[in-house]
Design a protein around this nucleic acid. Structure first.
Lengths: 190, 190
DNA sequence: CACAGGCTACCTAGTGGTAGGTTGATTTTG
DNA sequence: CAAAATCAACCTACCACTAGGTAGCCTGTG
């Protein structure tokens, strides 16, 4: 992957994370990069190609970041804390949303390959969370794992959406704190 | 408000709730209603006017629906259950999102009056939830009320987003069930 | 030379929005 | 009461602009 293509993706991600898929254009993007829109097409033949590449790279980086900031000795609580903090950082650095959270809202008007990548993002998140919860001393059934992972994911995605709209990124910390009073960290076999 | 304007708003809401603000056009809308796009402008001078009207009506109807389905004898748990059920119904009836949840994702590229209405939707929801929680035998500080209300709102908004993307509307029921194992219903003074 | 990586110039299809005209019902007035 | 004026609600036809995308040319470098 040439550095120009990465540069294009970087700017595209910035635009997409504040305006969504439908509301950024090849012209805007090209202007940011300092080239012409036709040249963007050289690297990404169609907008769907670019969108799918963005979502895929985002997912990989997101999961990789998560894996790099945990220690084997961390408690489930600490890890989920860091998971939430990842969302907070993403939001607070110039008010940008989670790329795939934003794309998810547009899923009905997304080209199919892009929508598929967004689904994969959520799946990857749920699987990652399930793995974390599986290490927990509290044994859970497969259904409970799924439910707990879904709970955590949806909570932060929602907090991000609401927090950004209300200009209150600290909403993420608010719900993170409330998550403490949950049986996520103390759930029994069920 | 003439019935034609309402008819336009009905169709616009349908389109907006599946495609978002940026991805529905006056022409699509006019075609659905069976008139020309110029005639839509007669009722709503600009798209921003229409968008704001949609969000406002949606908020009023949403809150009104909530108020109409609770009884004075209901427990907090039952009410929150119904609150979640309102989201589930909205999602499951032809897979449409909460209008304002969708608009929230696009907030950066929304005309200011529309964005303001979306904020008002979230505020109205939080205030409604706070009122419900205030009636609860468990006394809470103002901060705790705000936190609990935010928690519930963000949870369902997130569940809606993720649930629709994954074609799993029952995700809303999953998190509703998990909400049970939360101190929302048992929280003490803090 | 070949070719990667850009460019100019263009296309079609669509966008929100405007100007001005037509219709038919309602209201005002001689 | 009938003619005249007004009005809501739509229309056709168009505007300027932007979208994603394409064709073909240029230029520097291995």
């Amino acid at each position: 992957m040439s550095s120009k293509a990465e540069q294009i993706m970087d700017e595209a991600e910035n635009l997409a994370r504040s305006h969504g898929y439908n509301a950024f254009s090849f012209r805007d993007l090209a202007a940011k990069v300092g080239i012409k829109s036709a040249s963007v097409h050289y690297h990404f033949p169609t907008k769907a190609d670019l969108g799918a590449a963005l979502a895929k790279r985002y997912t990989e980086r997101f999961i990789s970041t998560l894996n790099h900031c945990i220690e084997p000795t961390d408690t489930t609580f600490e890890i989920v804390q860091r998971y939430g903090e990842a969302y907070y950082q993403a939001l607070v650095q110039d008010g940008r949303m989670c790329l795939c959270g934003l794309f998810a809202a547009e899923v009905d008007s997304l080209p199919e390959p892009v929508a598929a990548e967004v689904q994969r993002f959520f799946e990857a998140n749920i699987n990652w969370l399930k793995d974390i919860l599986r290490r927990d001393p509290h044994v859970r059934s497969e259904e409970a794992l799924e439910a707990d992972a879904t709970f955590i994911l949806t909570l932060f995605q929602g907090a991000m959406l609401v927090g950004r709209t209300m200009n209150q990124p600290e909403a993420i910390h608010t719900v993170m704190e409330k998550l403490r009073g949950t049986d996520i960290y103390t759930s029994r076999v069920n």
